[in-house]
């Protein structure tokens, strides 16, 4: 799960189907889909959002959504 990665760890997205449909659409818009490589840049405290980098761009999503995105560590 993307939400389980620690700061600095990388992963490849395996399955994104169980994320919220809005979130999925936006991630798709930003070019993040199954197969994309992602790297966790920072995790905000108190269950706050995570900042993720993929293909040279950074995005922020909530931890709860990140926990619904399956990744494989690389």
């Amino acid at each position: 799960m993307l939400g389980k990665l620690k700061t600095g760890e990388k992963g490849r997205i395996m399955n994104i189907a169980s994320a919220d449909k809005f979130v999925r659409r936006r991630l798709l818009d930003l070019g993040i889909a199954e197969g994309s490589e992602v790297c966790v840049k920072c995790i905000l405290p108190f269950g706050g959002p995570v900042m993720v980098e993929s293909c040279g761009q950074c995005i922020g999503i909530r931890r709860k959504e990140a926990l619904r995105i399956e990744v494989e560590r690389v």
């Binding site: 919220d20 991630l27 959504e65």
Partner: peptide, 9 residues
């Protein structure tokens, strides 16, 4: 209605 948050940095 759920609240969503995706932001481009």
């Amino acid at each position: 209605e759920t609240s969503v948050f995706v932001i481009e940095l």
